[in-house]
């Protein structure tokens, strides 16, 4: 075996075993025939070849052609996580935009800073907020390309913020916490890009669904302002109304709803909810890290956050277990 062949076979390990058992030999044959002009003991497979195998691996693992029933189930779960995750991001973005508009219009005074979901946004964050709302609307209408482009735009403030903080010389734990909180956006976008591959059908949601995140966001802003506006506002509510707190409430609601109505054999819902529970847990740990670093033990805010983290971990593990048990057996798909 030449070095080039060995390297290409290593790339093919990205593919699931059942697929390699079926295809590896002929893919190696086709690749080496096409690479005849390369010096076989020197060359590496081109990046474009590696990327094409990686894209194939994503499709095969997530329900594309050549996938097993198990792969199809994972694909459904990842797409569901993308839809639900984009909904949450669009909702919190709409909430931020609505609060911004109300402050600018002079309807309300500046919002207390600890309500992180409602802050005065910069230009970049405003643009990203619009992008999130547009991304969910496009996904709900089945416009996948627009949804993917808009969702990636929605992520732009994250690296900008990280770079800004690093240059500003803030403690490393803050940068880490920004990254952890950023996962709430990053994971659904990855799910969107990977789950809605070429072989996946676009979702067709109810025509009114694109309006749901702005409506829910507006409702949340009203609730937050009612609490924040009260002079005797209890500090502990903050832990339930910042971004991870709202994510927690939404996930808890969805899980209860699923447990009551969703007694179907499909593993997609529990797996998707588990993925989102772990993502929300990461962002919650991010806020806890910041609270601890500024040193406020015994803080009622911290207690609520810790309770959420514990519940999210348990919820995620239970849902993951339920989902995995409902997965089809890993028998290979019938091919050719």
């Amino acid at each position: 075996m030449t070095l080039l062949e060995a390297r290409y076979r290593r790339v093919l390990r990205l593919l699931p075993a059942h697929y390699r058992a079926e295809r590896e030999e002929e893919m190696v044959d086709a690749f080496l025939e096409g690479a005849a002009d390369l010096d076989e003991d020197e060359a590496h497979p081109r990046w474009s070849e590696v990327l094409s195998v990686a894209a194939l691996a994503v499709r095969v693992r997530l329900g594309g052609a050549g996938s097993t029933a198990r792969g199809a189930a994972w694909g459904e779960a990842v797409r569901l996580a993308a839809v639900a995750g984009l909904f949450l991001n669009a909702m919190t973005a709409a909430q931020g935009l609505a609060a911004e508009a109300l402050v600018r219009a002079g309807v309300i005074g500046p919002v207390p800073e600890e309500f992180r979901a409602v802050t005065t946004l910069g230009v970049l964050a405003t643009a990203a907020g619009v992008a999130w709302v547009a991304a969910f609307a496009a996904l709900a209408r089945g416009r996948l390309r627009v949804a993917k482009a808009a969702a990636v735009l929605g992520l732009v403030p994250l690296p900008v913020e990280v770079v800004r903080q690093v240059i500003g010389g803030v403690p490393a734990v803050w940068v880490l916490s920004i990254l952890l909180m950023g996962l709430v956006g990053v994971i659904p976008v990855l799910a969107l890009l990977a789950g809605y591959h070429r072989d996946a059908a676009a979702p067709r949601l109810h025509w009114a669904m694109p309006l749901a995140p702005p409506a829910a966001g507006l409702l949340a802003v009203v609730a937050i302002l009612a609490l924040a506006g009260s002079p005797t506002r209890p500090t502990w509510v903050v832990a339930w109304l910042d971004l991870p707190g709202l994510g927690f409430l939404a996930l808890a609601g969805l899980s209860v709803w699923h447990a009551r109505t969703g007694r179907t054999a499909s593993p997609a819902w529990p797996l998707a909810l588990a993925l989102l529970a772990f993502t929300t847990l990461a962002s919650r740990l991010g806020t806890i890290a910041v609270s601890l670093s500024v040193g406020a033990p015994g803080d009622p805010l911290l207690a609520g956050a810790a309770v959420q983290a514990g519940v999210l971990l348990a919820l995620g593990l239970v849902l993951l277990g339920l989902g995995r048990r409902a997965l089809p057996s890993p028998a290979p798909a019938v091919r050719l």
């Binding site: 893919m27 044959d29 990327l51 050549g66």
Partner: peptide
Amino acid sequence: KIGTLYGVLDRLVADGLVELDREEIARGR
């Protein structure tokens, strides 16, 4: 690219537009 080719072939075989004709061994592969 080879990964793209086999993705397309998988789809076409699944849709019944293309099928296996024969297998040969060439240069041991």
